[in-house]
């Protein structure tokens, strides 16, 4: 998987593993299917979705991704931006 550069426009996968069965997800529900911008690569960490179930975990790139709240929330809404740590496999470059 090639590293996503800062400034890359990305879309979070509109995937809902928790609706299909037991799952441990660190990508908040409110950004699934939303577009954001990569701010920086934070490092590489073992996949918590596997660690939580004591399965062998691949090491994945973790990014800080910024979202525009006006594209997520109807009012009431006052955030100017939301910054979230998201693992590479959840992101698709646009």
């Amino acid at each position: 998987m090639t590293r996503l550069a800062p400034g890359t426009r990305v879309r979070v996968r509109d995937d809902w593993p928790e609706a299909r069965g037991e799952a441990h997800i660190r990508t908040p529900h409110y950004v699934r299917g939303r577009e954001g911008v990569v701010v920086r690569h934070l490092g590489d960490f073992p996949n918590p979705e596997d660690l939580a179930f004591v399965r062998p975990a691949a090491t994945l790139p973790l990014y800080h991704v910024q979202f525009d709240p006006s594209a997520i929330w109807p009012p009431p809404r006052s955030a100017g931006a939301v910054l979230i740590e998201i693992f590479g496999p959840w992101l698709e470059a646009r």
Binding site: W16, E18, A23, P28, W73
Partner: peptide
């Protein structure tokens, strides 16, 4: 339309 009421959300996933 309204992620604060998405039924697919897990109950601990509380943002918004």
């Amino acid at each position: 339309s309204e992620p604060g009421e998405d039924p697919r959300r897990a109950h601990h996933d509380l943002g918004g």
